[in-house]
Each structure stands twice: as structure tokens, then as C-alpha cells.
Design a protein around this nucleic acid. Structure first.
Lengths: 143, 143
DNA sequence: TTAAGTGCAAAATCTTTGCAAATGT
DNA sequence: ACATTTGCAAAGATTTTGCACTTAA
């Protein structure tokens, strides 16, 4: 079995990105977090190792390349989560439900739920759907 | 028939807020806009009559009191729309679909669509749902 | 009269940009 | 070697706070 770090390196290579320490660390933290993460939280988790500007640029690059998808939470803050392998530079497939915990503000991707169909009114064209559920997550309920 | 301005004044009184020019103007602009409005757009529509800080404070107060509801759009920007009469200081009822135009960035409240039921996974409690639809609005399709 | 609301200045965030130095391939 | 990536400094954008002045009730 290949190490996790090697998997991340391959992920970067597959998207024609250079393998740098900063990028590997961002991937490791996000993949290990278990929920979508915001830039401020990421910054705390990572510590002083990576400059804030670099972090912003890494997140933007990863989103453009289809490595991460961006989820806007209840407060309008951007949160990032690993994309499914179906995401590419040209098309994001982010059609699942996001659960926003109103207590700890974690954002969970609920891959097992399927979005409903919605018919657009006359004159409107639908490109994508985004269903957010707000409530209390399992962690917070057990405290 | 009572004038619109008098209706707005009553709306403010009903929520125990003083009737001021700034508040009446904000209500008039938002009610006349036909979609949810962001603070920057509101500021342009209103012009120099109201200080930016006052505008922020009015929007916050209106949201707290249940006069406006806040809709976060695709970019994480807060947009404000008139609440239905079912909204109070203690409980917002904002359970309708929001249509985000990816071209003009207007946010439409689709009151005629009903949200689907979602069952929460074990341990999670759902408080509210938020379904955003992204696409091209009628206005932009006709240009 | 007096509590609530407003305007201005200034601070606190959050995010982006420009450029020189460092790094991966 | 060379294009990419990074760090730092600085600018831009957005939102909040403090305080004195004004206004609605």
C-alpha cells in the first residue's frame, strides 16, 4: 500500500501542480478533518508553517483544478472539502447535501443523500442545485 | 388605501422600532427591487443619503427583528429580502427556494416552491433547510 | 426629556496584488 | 535553467466599534 503522502503527491501531479510541502500539508489537514474547513480554521490547524497568502493561493488553485470544492456556509464563509474523483478542472460535481452545524460551524458533506429535482419557472435556466441543512451535528449533540 | 410609506411606518412600529427616514428609504428600496439585495447594491441604489455604517446597522436590526431575512449567495455575500409576515423576532420562516443568477447575481425568492423533506442521519438534528438554485434568470435570458 | 438612531473617524477583518527570493522538475 | 511557488509588504474590500450629535416619541 502506498503512503498517504504519496497519494497526495500523485493527486497534485495528476492536476499538473508541483509537489510542495505547503500543498501536501494543506491536503493532509483537510483530508484528516472530516468536514469542510474554512481558511481561518485551516490557518489555526496548520500553524505558522505556511504564510496566509500562500494558503489563500493554494485553496484557490485547488478549487480551480478540481481538487477541492468550496462550500459557502451560513455565515458566508468559504469552506473547503476534498472533491470526489469526478471533479475536474472543467466541471465540478458537488451535487450533495451540506450539513451546517449551527453550534460548532463545521460543514459536513452528506454524500449519501441525493438532491431533489426542481423545475425552473418559465424563463429561468437551472445550472446547479445547492441544498444546505442547518442543525446540530452528532459531535455537538453528544456533549 | 393607505400609502406605501404609511405601511412601512406601521411595519416599523409593529416591531417597536422608531420611524426614521433612513429606515423608510431602506424598506422602500428593498421592497421595490424585486429580488434580494446585497449591501453594496443597496448602497448604490440609495446613494449618499444614508451613511454606510447606518445602512449596516439598519440591515442588522431588520434581520434581528424579523423584517428582513438574509440570504447568502454563491459568493458568500449577504443579500436581504422582505420577510413574509410569518417572521418574528424569535423565529424566521425562510423555507423557500432561492434562485441565484450566475450572470447578474440577483437573488430571487421563489415562494411558490416547496422544499423537500430530508431525514437527518443518526445523531444529527435538522433545524432548517436552505435550497439554492443557480442558473440564469429570466431577465438575463432575454438579453 | 430621553432613549434610540445616526454620522464620522478609526479599527478590525478578510482577501488580493506586486515583486523578489526560493523551490520543484 | 526556468517556470512555478512562496513569503513579505502593502493595498483593497468589507464589516464592526466608539463616541458625540441628532431625532423620534
Amino acid at each position: 500500500m502506498v503512503s498517504t503522502e504519496e497519494n497526495f503527491a500523485n493527486l497534485l501531479r495528476n492536476h499538473h501542480l508541483k509537489v510542495t510541502n505547503a500543498r501536501l500539508e494543506v491536503l493532509a489537514v483537510i483530508a484528516g478533518y472530516g468536514a469542510a474547513v474554512s481558511q481561518p480554521v485551516l490557518e489555526k490547524l496548520i500553524g505558522t508553517g505556511i504564510d496566509r497568502v500562500t494558503l489563500y493561493r493554494i485553496l484557490n488553485t485547488f478549487e480551480e483544478k478540481g481538487i477541492l470544492h468550496k462550500v459557502i456556509d451560513l455565515n458566508g464563509t468559504a469552506n473547503y472539502a476534498m472533491c470526489s474523483t469526478a471533479c475536474t478542472e472543467h466541471q465540478h460535481h458537488d451535487e450533495h447535501i451540506h450539513f451546517n452545524c449551527t453550534n460548532c460551524h463545521k460543514v459536513y458533506c452528506m454524500h449519501s443523500y441525493i438532491l431533489p429535482n426542481v423545475d425552473a419557472p418559465e424563463g429561468f435556466n437551472i445550472q446547479s442545485l445547492n441544498l444546505s441543512v442547518n442543525g446540530i451535528c452528532k459531535n455537538c449533540n453528544n456533549e
